[in-house]
Design a protein around this nucleic acid. Structure first.
Length: 771
DNA sequence: TTTAGCTCAATTTTT
DNA sequence: TTGAGCTAAA
């Protein structure tokens, strides 16, 4: 491609952003406004027209998919002649990891580390809780994990962890956090959060290292800036910001309206406060949408404008008005699913849509069941996104654990995973004894004793004091079996020195009898596992071929011993790559959560289960409702703006959830979309099926929820007290208290002596009988 | 050491 | 309602 050609393909605003290469720049990129095109053009422009060395350019994304796409487009724009000098384009995690590995000497790690994913992290936390003899009921390991990870998102270290009202639970979390960090470093392992935090601390505490990278990365780009957390923000500040040496050549791209990961630590303030952080920053708004019809954009705009935490921004398009949005009311989730699938079949027949042009978005994965049932019955090919990932499957994790133990003997999580997998008679009693021994030794020696070391000593193969002959704490069969395991691993380690990953994989399966055991089991589940292992074999082979491609013999020889490390890292950090390969280019109907829909687009979108309590998924009696509602509204906005041509939104009257029957109200978002762009259908029993009609029934219910005038409520607060209350679910009750006022006003209703519930008044008004 | 039954919890998940 | 993960029987 000729150098100026890619610039001509841009609109005025995109070009403005591309050409503003010096100083801080924030690009507010609405959905479907050509953000990636802008970013990749900008990077190309820097290299081709500004003579900037690719080596000086950094671009960080959140997903591997986004990074890959960006790399490919930059490569294409610059005519494929970049050679080896390419810009650094990667995820936050992969970029940080590269830096950490390079600067290993300045980190707490004494040798290269492995990455612990969330489940590895949880096992380690459980071990620590056991060592601390914490009551798992009171101190739920998952809750502890979530708290630690949240602290890491906020860049809070264990020693600083001291929240405002430091409660009993949090004090224990701090203890666990401290021990956990010790173990991480001792085991040469790192978790996702630590990858970011440690890199930040590396820059913060080592000015010379910071300056080195400040000098290297002269042009910094950040994608999806609205999703950055505190730690990522600080990291970027250290590199580009006000810190000594910061050049402030930073270009952030994002859309606060698409910020849906607050619950994972993303801080929307980062994008809202950018100009305050970088005074004099240029602002460019990308508001022209190239994806959706006017109708779809109108709906999206009307919904999102109800949020307060945002900047004014209006999407527009040159596309046609298109079809109206179809709002569907089904009596229950069964009919909802039947309708959606029959509509898909109808459109696929009558129009020229392929199956992959359709998608179903839901708020929770549990909702997929109904649709799956119908699809299986109708024999329609489908694909669920975001379920169990390939690398998360048990058998795959087991094999990866073998690999990891061979690379890093200090990785206790992986050792514990495979020590009795497949079963080799090393049971709980034996393992308890080893752990007991390990704890005693750690106390005696005042330092972490690696689990592998404890195993060696327990098996009488080594002694803490080399001068003393080894003794054993185990006897008989248990001892023999543990020794057998140790010899097995040592044998594998020997093989790992010369084997390719595929060869090692086959060897391990053979020696452990992993597949043999599954074959004997012969259940459907076991057979599926064998298939997955075969798939793993393919992936591993492809990986080796990829790595060796276009390399000289000498380069291949140099690469060979590192293959296993590279593979493990990819499997942990890009756990989606396997699934992506699997599902490429298949004509299937896709289903996914609204969260996973971000960044995608489809000609026809079905948003299902749009009901108060499910989506928005707010429990009305919980606090902090307004901010949560805004996040749910953004989620709705994301869903709507995925649609190119047609959009359906459905809700049901009755939904069975966890064995309970719920009478559902339509989502408040319906009331925010103008009637003029909506076509309503009521599938209720008794009404004529699939016949379009203007229902006054809907309007009356939605108006109840919009009817939030504080005047009428504050006046009636005392009147409500003592009022009779008939709830369709809980039956008759009485209002015993009224809390808050205006929009936030809640009533406490007593249904029985021990059953009191809180409701936001404006949503339950129709249940209150004031007389 | 395996297994059957029990309890418990249950949004969203880029890395 | 479902499933995962864990304690009492075989």
């Amino acid at each position: 491609m000729m150098s100026a050609e890619f610039l001509r393909a841009l609109n005025e605003k995109q070009r403005e952003a591309v050409e503003a290469t010096e100083g801080p720049l924030i690009v507010l990129a609405g959905a479907g406004s050509g953000k990636t095109k802008m970013l990749t053009s900008r990077i190309t422009h820097l290299m081709v027209h500004k003579g900037v060395s690719p080596h000086s350019i950094l671009a960080v994304t959140f997903t591997n998919k986004a990074a890959k796409e960006m790399r490919e487009r930059v490569e294409k724009f610059s005519g494929g002649n970049l050679g080896w000098n390419t810009p650094e384009i990667g995820t936050f995690h992969s970029v940080c990891l590269k830096i950490l590995r390079f600067e290993l000497a300045s980190t707490p790690y004494v040798k290269p580390f492995v990455i612990y994913d969330d489940s590895d992290q949880l096992s380690l936390i459980k071990t620590i809780c056991r060592k601390m003899t914490l009551d798992e009921k009171q101190f739920n390991p998952k809750a502890i994990q979530a708290t630690i990870n949240r602290a890491k998102c906020d860049a809070v270290e264990a020693s600083q962890y001291q929240p405002a009202n430091f409660n009993h639970f949090q004090k224990k979390v701090r203890e666990v956090y401290e021990l956990y960090q010790n173990e991480l470093f001792a085991q040469c392992a790192i978790d996702f959060g630590e990858i970011i935090c440690l890199t930040y601390r590396l820059f913060r505490d080592n000015p010379e290292i910071r300056q080195k990278y400040q000098k290297r990365f002269k042009y910094i780009h950040v994608d999806e800036y609205q999703d950055t957390n505190r730690a990522q923000y600080l990291l970027l500040s250290a590199l580009a910001g006000k810190t000594a040496g910061g050049h402030q050549n930073i270009c952030v791209v994002g859309d606060e309206d698409q910020s849906i990961y607050k619950w994972r630590g993303a801080d929307i303030r980062n994008i809202l406060d950018f100009e305050a952080d970088y005074p004099g920053a240029q602002i460019v708004k990308l508001e022209q949408n190239y994806r959706s019809t006017q109708t779809i954009l109108a709906a999206a705009s009307h919904v999102i404008k109800n949020n307060r935490e945002r900047r004014e921004k209006t999407l527009w398009t040159e596309n046609e008005a298109g079809h109206k949005i179809v709002r569907v009311k089904a009596p229950d989730e069964r009919v909802e699913a039947e309708f959606v699938i029959s509509e898909i079949k109808r459109l696929a027949h009558e129009e020229t849509y392929a199956l992959k042009d359709f998608t179903i978005f839901y708020r929770t994965h549990a909702q997929s069941r109904q649709f799956e049932d119908v699809l299986r019955r109708e024999k329609i090919a489908y694909q669920i996104y975001g379920g169990l990932r390939f690398y998360d499957r048990k058998e795959i994790k087991d094999i990866l654990s073998y690999f990891r133990v061979l690379i890093n003997p200090l990785d206790s999580v992986s050792i514990k995973r495979i020590i009795n997998t497949p079963t080799r008679g090393i049971g709980k009693t034996t393992l308890d004894k080893v752990e007991e021994y390990q704890i005693a030794q750690e106390r005696a020696r005042g330092q972490v004793v690696p689990y592998w070391q404890a195993l060696l000593e327990a098996a009488g193969l080594e002694h803490p004091d080399p001068a003393v002959p080894a003794t054993t704490i185990l006897t008989g069969a248990a001892l023999k079996k543990l020794q057998g395991f140790i010899y097995l691993i040592e044998q594998f380690r020997e093989k790992a020195k010369s084997f390719l990953p595929t060869e090692l994989f086959h060897w391990i399966l053979e020696e452990t009898g992993y597949v043999r055991e599954l074959k004997e089991e012969a259940t459907d589940e076991a057979l599926a596992r064998i298939e997955n292992l075969e798939e793993f074999d393919n992936l591993l082979q492809e990986f080796e071929e990829d790595q060796f491609a276009e390399k000289t013999d000498a380069e291949q020889a140099e690469l060979r011993p590192r293959l296993l490390d590279i593979y493990i890292e990819q499997a942990t950090l890009d756990s989606d790559s396997a699934t992506r390969a699997e599902q490429a280019e298949l004509d299937r109907l896709s289903m996914m959560s609204l969260h996973s829909s971000k960044g995608l687009e489809f000609p026809v979108v079905f948003m299902v289960g749009m009901e108060e309590g499910l989506f928005p998924s707010i429990r009305p009696w919980e606090e902090g409702a307004e901010e949560e509602i805004e996040e749910e509204r953004r989620l709705c906005y994301v869903g709507i703006t995925r649609a190119r041509e047609r959009l359906y939104m459905s809700h049901v009257g009755v939904r069975r959830l966890w064995g309970e029957t719920h009478y559902q109200e339509p989502a408040r978002f319906f009331a925010e979309i103008p009637d003029s762009v909506i076509d309503e259908r009521d599938l209720s029993y008794g009404s004529v099926g699939f016949v379009s009609r203007r229902s006054s029934e809907f309007r009356s219910t939605t108006q109840t929820s919009t009817f939030g005038g504080s005047k009428s409520f504050t006046g009636s607060a005392h009147v409500l007290h003592g009022a009779k209350f008939i709830h369709p679910d809980y039956g008759a009750g009485r209002v015993v208290a009224v809390e808050g006022s205006g929009e936030q006003e809640k009533v406490v209703v007593e249904f029985s002596a021990k059953d009191k519930r809180k409701f936001i008044t404006k949503y339950v008004r129709q249940f209150i009988d004031i007389d």
